[in-house]
Design a protein around this nucleic acid. Structure first.
Length: 944
DNA sequence: GAAATCACG
DNA sequence: GACGTACGTGATTTCC
């Protein structure tokens, strides 16, 4: 039986607009911009490659817009009237799209006075009538009207950038209605890009709600009469004609003449000419190589093994860097060597020594670098010049033959001189992990570079739609090398069937492990030069790079916790929650899961009938702290009990239970893992467990801090910056009165209260404090009003007063936003960049969110830079003072925690205070002093 | 896996 | 006033 034909219709014009914004501004050898064309070419390549695969194309055609005029201009003269002209360097790429399509020997359809959407609709319906399946390669919302099935023939869509199929479910998810009603929704909401009016003031949410409720456009418009008085009702009545006109405009024509027959769209193997000529002309050399390697053409790939779906494509670089495409050969895992003799290992070490640069990666038995065993080490000296040295494979099955491998101690002894050699640079990806593993195996490593940190310092925050912004190796390989790495999952499986890396056969393990080193080496070549050209050298070399071994050591130190004390607290909390639960059930008159916000909402606002329940977008009542506090204030006895229950349940599950489990059996201490690339502003983050959110704000929670203790004869010392972010704001925004207040050591919130309200008392100081923080976070009158419990108008008046009193603040905000809009990133005093790709978004909420984050980032980020500088300098300074035995254990954003003999407190305090207070110098000289508060005690709680 | 909630600076 | 209301995080729970 012949396979059912499957027609792919590519919406070419729409694609290149998206590709243009997503890809770097590449140019071909003649200087013609070809970034979007490159993206388009790789997309066609992939589609052609899918010939005869499940759901792949048997027929393929590209539809282009010849002109933007159509029948719609006849009935509505303003149709698409306010479209901005396309970007200058996109214009010369339009004709190249046609060239690219012809290069693939594919039909390219463009008709005068017919829009691509209508042509696509006409072809799709015709194919469907003949019983074919159709996939429209586009993400245009207008085309979603076509999705669905008729007589077993289906039309779906494919968004190649997000690699997502769009079918009925996805359409319903987006519009809240089935595809056939999408036109009705579009008619109500309009489209500012195409200048379709819709109903003024009605957006996608309201539009889909109305259509879903009333079943259709006419019914929704008719229903307006019967609605209660509202803005919406008035508008539906007033703009009815606009909506009806819009309905016609958004309707796709399905009866266009078809200039090419469906049969002529049959997809065959793509002939290598004229494709090769086209690729050569525009400098797409990696694709050209691939074409030659593949004996002539893409398509007809029967190789579905994901391990072999290697690509040699150029980078689809979301990060928007302007580097040339990398000139490396495609990753070829068959070139990797499995090193199984000491002779071979020594040969590699010698070559690494000569090369002066080696990428290194370790493989281990688990993700916990404080507990795992070392299973192997891989090295890379160049592209496809990599090896894997297995050291701990086999062993779980005593009867199976153990693979041949070098003795671990002997191998480490052979590698140690190389790893410690100052003249040989060791490049890692997330080196902190490997440093800890190697340190636990008695091997020190220096000097170190880290491609994960480099990526972060270049591209923090740079993620765009559908493209991750992370700094993981697999993601960076895709983004910068166009290469898909083997995944750990593919190798070891997942869930219950997962096997440890040590049980992976050596040939497979070599492919995976050596690839990681190979990719790290390539990423280093690609990313390191960008630091210099993009201004990242300072922050990388002076702050983040030297921080890696410092943080690694802090993690290895860990901190002692008093297990018995935590266990007692757990029991106490368990008893209390059980008691509260009974009381809550008694008041409610029903047994329910107190921990389920869903059930709780029903109990509060239905069973017990309390008023003022608000449902969020998921249709669930909100029962968060603010709601429960309001209810409690209004005299609901159950609310206070629930609040108390919540607090205790949280403390038990997140802290007293979890921390006991986090104690490392080998060291008896808790070792967190800090991420140096977790927070876009440059802060660290802490996981497994998170030691940056241990309770302190409530008395009951503070007991948990008492369980973090010092060793016998030692104390914990906590040193924290006082009001560092406000101090930095005073400096950066240049506010004389605030700077003076800090210089005088005044209470800053009290000073603000005097400036704002003329007097200071508990109330005005509290308000001033709230306003001060609001400023740091990017303010809105609604947000401030909500916090202060006043109307937005009143909040706005306060903001105005604040800006009047401290005009520098407003100037800072305006200047910062202008700069971010212009350059795309914000910058700290030390030159750390954070990117804000959504700062120009048309979506107001999204844009304003970016704006608030952009106002905050330089302040939060500068504070992060300062404490990082202090951390880097801390141990050398202590050592110089004969205090090298003092251990730095924790960092909590503006606080450092140390462990030291009680006798050394005075001497260490002096050094710590000096290093922290002077951490900005000499790179930056602040107009405000940095205050440091220090406390000591046998527990962390007592040190505050 | 998402959503809701809450712990921290 | 379409949307939602302060910045940055991570962990746990319930529920689909």
């Amino acid at each position: 039986m012949a396979e059912t034909p499957h027609l792919y219709l590519v919406d070419g014009s729409a694609y290149i607009f998206r590709a243009y914004h997503r890809l770097p501004p590449l140019t071909d050898p003649e200087g013609t911009p070809v970034g979007a064309v490159y993206g388009y070419t790789t997309m066609l390549w992939k589609l052609a490659d899918d010939l005869h695969k499940a759901d792949g194309p048997t027929h393929l055609a590209v539809i282009l817009d010849k002109s933007s005029r159509s029948f719609r201009n006849e009935i509505y003269d303003k149709y698409k009237a306010n479209r901005p002209p396309p970007p200058e360097d996109l214009v010369p790429q339009f004709p190249l799209i046609r060239d690219a399509t012809r290069a693939f020997s594919l039909p390219c359809i463009e008709e005068p006075d017919v829009e691509a959407d209508d042509m696509i609709a006409s072809y799709a319906r015709e194919a469907q009538r003949q019983g074919w399946n159709v996939t429209i390669v586009s993400s245009d919302k207008d085309l979603m009207q076509l999705v669905g099935e008729q007589d077993g023939a289906r039309i779906d869509m494919l968004d190649t950038m997000k690699n997502a199929r769009i079918y009925i479910e996805e359409v319903e998810e987006k519009f809240g209605v089935p595809p056939e009603k999408v036109g009705d929704v579009l008619a109500l909401m309009g489209d500012s890009v195409d200048n379709i009016p819709g109903i003024f003031g009605v957006g996608p949410k309201t539009a889909s709600r109305l259509i879903a409720e009333h079943g259709g456009l006419t019914a929704a418009l008719d229903a307006a009469e019967g609605m209660k008085k509202s803005k919406l009702k008035e508008r539906l009545l007033e703009y009815r004609a606009d909506a009806e006109l819009s309905r016609v405009l958004v309707t796709l024509r399905e009866d266009c003449g078809l200039p090419v027959s469906l049969d002529d769209m049959k997809l065959d193997q793509v002939p290598s000419e004229p494709l090769a000529a086209f690729l050569g002309k525009h400098g797409f050399s990696s694709l050209l190589k691939r074409l030659e390697a593949g004996n002539g053409s893409p398509s007809r790939t029967t190789d579905l093994d994901p391990a072999k779906r290697d690509t040699a494509g150029a980078p689809a670089n979301a990060a928007g860097n302007r580097q040339p495409l990398p000139d490396f050969p495609a990753v070829d895992r068959s070139t990797y060597e499995c090193v199984q003799t000491l002779d071979r290992l020594e040969a590699w070490a010698e070559r690494a020594q000569a090369a002066r640069l080696v990428a290194v990666d370790t493989e281990t038995s688990s993700l916990d670098c404080m507990q795992c065993d070392l299973v192997g080490i891989s090295l890379a000296l160049g592209a496809n010049d990599a090896c894997y040295i297995p050291l701990g494979h086999g062993g779980s099955d005593m009867f199976a033959e153990k693979p041949v491998q070098i003795d671990k101690a002997a191998a480490l002894k052979a590698l140690a001189p190389l790893l410690a050699n100052d003249a040989v640079l060791k490049v890692f990806h997330n080196g902190k992990y490997d440093l800890n593993v190697l340190a636990r195996n008695g091997v020190a490593v220096s000097p170190v570079d880290d491609t994960m940190i480099i990526s972060f310092d270049l591209d923090a925050g740079r993620q765009l739609d559908g493209i991750g912004g992370g700094h993981g190796m697999d993601e960076l390989a895709e983004r910068h090398l166009g290469h898909t790495c083997l995944t750990f999952k593919e190798l070891c499986g997942t869930g219950r069937k997962a096997i440890p890396f040590g049980e992976v056969p050596l040939d497979k393990a070599t492919e995976y492990a050596a690839e990681d080193a190979d990719v790290t080496w390539r990423l280093y070549q690609q990313l390191k030069p960008r630091l210099a050209t993009e201004g990242g050298t300072k922050i990388y070399e002076r702050v983040d790079r030297p921080l890696v071994p410092v943080v690694a050591q802090m993690e290895r130190h860990g901190i002692k916790v008093d297990r018995a004390r935590l266990a007692r607290l757990s029991e106490e909390f368990a008893g209390e929650t059980a008691r509260l639960e009974k009381e809550i059930h008694a008041i409610a008159g029903t047994e329910f899961t107190v921990g389920s916000p869903k059930q709780l909402g029903e109990v509060l606002f239905v069973t017990l009938g309390y008023k003022g329940g608000k449902k969020g977008k998921s249709g669930q009542y909100s029962t968060d702290q603010s709601v429960l506090e309001r209810l409690s204030g209004e005299g609901a006895p159950i609310a206070a009990k629930i609040l108390e229950w919540r607090q205790l349940a949280k403390l038990k599950s997140t802290y007293t239970d979890a921390l006991q489990e986090a104690i490392n059996p080998q060291t008896g201490r808790v070792h967190t893992s800090y991420s140096l690339v977790g927070a876009q502003t440059g802060r660290l983050s802490s996981t497994d467990p998170n030691l940056q959110n241990i309770p302190i704000r409530t008395e009951i929670g503070r007991q948990i801090r008492e369980a973090f203790v010092a060793e016998e004869g030692h104390v914990l010392l906590a040193a924290d910056y006082s009001q560092i972010e406000l101090r930095l704001a005073a400096h950066m925004a240049d506010v004389p009165s605030l700077k003076e207040a800090f210089a005088q050591g005044e209470d800053i919130h009290a000073r603000t209260a005097i400036e704002m309200f003329g007097e200071v008392n508990r109330d005005t100081r509290g308000r001033a404090k709230t306003i001060n923080f609001a400023i740091l976070y990017g303010i809105s009158r609604w947000g401030l009003g909500g916090r202060l419990g006043v109307e937005a108008d009143e909040a706005q008046a306060m903001i105005d007063t604040y800006f009047q009193r401290f005009p520098g603040i407003q100037k800072y905000i305006v200047r910062t936003l202008e700069e971010v809009r212009e350059r795309g990133y914000s910058e700290t005093l030390f030159g750390r960049k954070t990117w804000f790709p959504r700062i120009g978004s048309k979506n107001q909420a999204e844009r304003q969110g970016s704006e608030r984050a952009a106002i905050n980032a330089p302040i939060q980020g500068t504070s992060a830079d300062i404490i990082k500088r202090a951390m880097v300098r801390m141990m050398p300074a202590l050592q110089e003072a004969g205090l090298g035995h003092v251990r730095m254990l924790l960092q909590v954003h503006d606080e450092l925690v140390f462990e030291l003999p009680e006798a050394d407190v005075a001497a260490a305090s002096a050094v710590i205070e000096r290093v922290m207070a002077g951490a900005a110098e000499p790179a930056v000289s602040l107009d405000v002093p940095l205050g440091v508060d220090i406390g000591t005690g046998t527990s962390w709680g007592a040190a505050h």
